[in-house]
């Protein structure tokens, strides 16, 4: 029996990830940003704030899970695709192999999801210990998986579009960083100024943050899930188109 086409692509990235995993610095770097936010906002500022009847830390942890999963999935895939395409030329092995562009995409996305889920797991672990009102619900799991998927797919798109490794930082600064701060990670969306709201609701992390905090699915939750599916499909098809059109 032969393995599906995405297996070797995923396996290669997984070996890289596994090797890095056992280096202490890597685990530390995956944890450092959420831990800093947790201490600064959650334990410092948040100790005096209540959010709709729950403590701020219980509000913050799902947001940090969304942010970490976005950041780690996106950064890993965008960096890997960009470096392997432009500098190591290992991406060309996949492009030249008799596997479909969808298989390449799925392999890269799954690798990004593993990285995103690993980083999220560390934050969830802290949440389970430190936040009393924190709970893992079905919408939470759906939001987390969709978030890892769509930001890994976006990572492929950015990795394929950029013409230098430095350029990936530009996308991070203009796209990923604003999303991390304005899409409901640290404060509820109803406190965002009205003029910003229409833009904020067009960004995928907003809907991850809405869905991830739902105890059970309601109308708003279904709408956010639908939009996350839309963003996931959009980035997937865009990535597929870029791989199909690969030309040196």
């Amino acid at each position: 029996m032969t393995a599906p086409g995405w297996v070797p692509i995923f396996l290669k990235e997984y070996i890289h990830f596994r090797r890095k995993l056992f280096k202490l610095g890597y685990i530390f770097s995956a944890m450092v940003a959420p831990v800093i936010y947790l201490i600064a906002f959650g334990l410092g500022l948040g100790s005096r704030v209540m959010m709709g009847g729950t403590d701020y830390l219980s509000f913050l942890i799902p947001g940090l899970v969304a942010m970490s999963s976005m950041h780690n999935s996106y950064t890993w895939v965008a960096g890997m695709v960009n470096l392997s395409r432009l500098y190591f030329k290992t991406f060309q092995i996949f492009v030249q192999a008799p596997v479909s562009s969808s298989a390449i995409l799925v392999g890269e996305i799954l690798a990004g999801m593993v990285k995103g889920l690993f980083a999220s797991f560390l934050v969830i672990l802290i949440g389970c210990i430190a936040a009393q009102g924190f709970a893992i619900t079905m919408p939470f799991i759906l939001a987390l998986l969709m978030n890892c998927f769509l930001f890994s797919a976006l990572g492929v798109v950015v990795g394929m579009l950029t013409r230098s490794h430095e350029e990936t930082a530009t996308y991070s600064n203009f796209l990923i960083m604003p999303m991390a701060f304005f899409c409901g990670t640290f404060f509820p969306l109803d406190r965002i100024p009205a003029f910003l709201k229409s833009i904020i609701y067009l960004l995928p992390l907003t809907h991850t943050n809405i869905l991830i905090r739902k105890g059970a699915m309601d109308k708003e939750g279904w709408l956010s899930l639908l939009l996350l599916l839309f963003f996931g499909a959009l980035f997937f098809l865009w990535g597929k188109r870029l791989i199909d059109g690969y030309d040196e």
């Binding site: 032969t2 393995a3 086409g5 297996v7 070797p8 692509i9 396996l11 290669k12 070996i15 890289h16 090797r19 190591f88 030329k89 290992t90 060309q92 092995i93 996949f94 192999a97 008799p98 596997v99």
Partner: peptide, 25 residues
């Protein structure tokens, strides 16, 4: 065999070939 050495430098020789063999089934 390309001009650039496009092997995965962090993988072993066998791992490089394993990945390639899987790609070509």
């Amino acid at each position: 065999v390309p001009q650039e050495i496009n092997l995965d430098r962090e993988l072993t020789a066998r791992e490089n070939l394993e990945i390639y063999a899987l790609l070509y089934r």
